[in-house]
Design a protein around this nucleic acid. Structure first.
Length: 298
DNA sequence: AAGGGCACCAACCGCCTGTAA
DNA sequence: ATTACAGGCGGTTGGTGCCCT
């Protein structure tokens, strides 16, 4: 079906009447969602203003477009941001800044809005807690030389854990995700599949006793984004610029630890007691490292 | 149990750009 | 070349639910 919304010629009188009607705003109802889905299924997307009228939605074209792209589109990927996605977001943001849509293009199924929200609620929060600007070199270096390598370590750990549990050939498909302790639950609103993590957290995947999820979120041990990384000790990424992960090439973790024995440092450093490691981007050992590197004052 | 604070995220807003007339 | 409109984008807001006191 290739009939576009532009083919719909709205009734002039009706259009005129609607011009005087206040366009509806705020949360979408199930009925509105179905109207939009039905219309797009029949006529396709595009020409959002006329689409809104023709579909009988008292909404702005922009509102319809946003609702479709960010929520109703069948390939929208919902659920927790995986470790791989976190790493990719950090890397791409370091390259492109707040170019959310561009970043989103490299995370299939994720919307720019979702990535933007993730950045603001998680990453900026951490910068705030560290009392530094999210755009400062200090914080960027922190991300690049501490946080991202830590993520890589955790991805490695998670990959290793999942490899033992799953047969070799099935690491990237939804089927395999189900097989490794995650659940696929129906989206009760629209019937789309929604992947949720049932039990896996970074506490499980961490290589150190004190480590916790960088963000306090549940993450998936494997994901569709496994394709972005090889399982070898060198990351490869399907990206035009192979240098984009230059700071995280070595997955051994040793180099990035700079020889510090984090666990012993942590045990002997009362300063670390003040840090809430459970819900921070950085855990206690990371904070110690930060202090060493950037002379942070808390 | 209540309410205050907080995190998350859907949705809106305003500006910019591209394109067709 | 100009103008009007549609679409895209980044920033911001407001509602909701959860957690803590």
């Amino acid at each position: 079906m290739d009939v576009k919304a532009r083919d719909c010629v709205p009734n002039v009188q009706q259009s005129s009447e609607e011009d005087h009607m206040e366009l509806k705003r705020g949360p979408w109802t199930v009925e509105e969602d179905f109207k939009l889905i039905d219309y797009i299924a029949t006529h396709g997307e595009g020409r959002w203003n006329s689409l809104a009228r023709c579909a009988g939605l008292n909404r702005s074209g922009k509102s319809c477009r946003l609702r479709w792209l960010n929520y109703l589109r069948p390939d929208v990927r919902r659920g927790n941001i995986t470790l791989q996605e976190q790493l990719l977001i950090l890397e791409l943001h370091s390259r492109w800044g707040n170019r959310w849509s561009k970043i989103a293009q490299h995370l299939p199924g994720r919307t720019d809005n979702e990535i933007k929200n993730y950045w603001r609620t998680r990453v900026q929060k951490q910068a705030k807690q560290l009392k530094c600007d999210v755009n400062s070199k200090q914080f960027k270096d922190t991300m690049r030389y501490l946080w991202m390598p830590r993520l890589v370590e955790r991805i490695q750990a998670a990959t290793a854990a999942s490899t033992t549990a799953v047969t070799a050939a099935s690491t990237t498909t939804l089927t395999s995700v189900v097989g490794t302790g995650q659940t696929v639950s129906g989206d009760d609103r629209l019937g789309g599949a929604q992947v949720t993590s049932s039990s896996y957290t970074l506490e499980n995947s961490s290589t150190t006793a004190a480590s916790s999820d960088s963000f306090g979120t549940q993450v998936s041990p494997v994901s569709d984004f496994t394709d972005y990384y090889s399982s070898s000790n060198n990351i490869s990424i399907n990206n035009p610029n192979p240098n984009c992960l230059e700071a995280t090439q070595d997955l051994s973790g040793n180099y990035y630890n700079h020889g510090l024995d984090f666990q012993s440092l942590e045990q002997n450093n009362p300063w670390l007691d003040t840090i809430d490691a459970s819900n921070n981007l950085f855990n206690a050992e990371d904070f110690y490292f930060l202090q060493q590197q950037f002379n942070f004052t808390m």
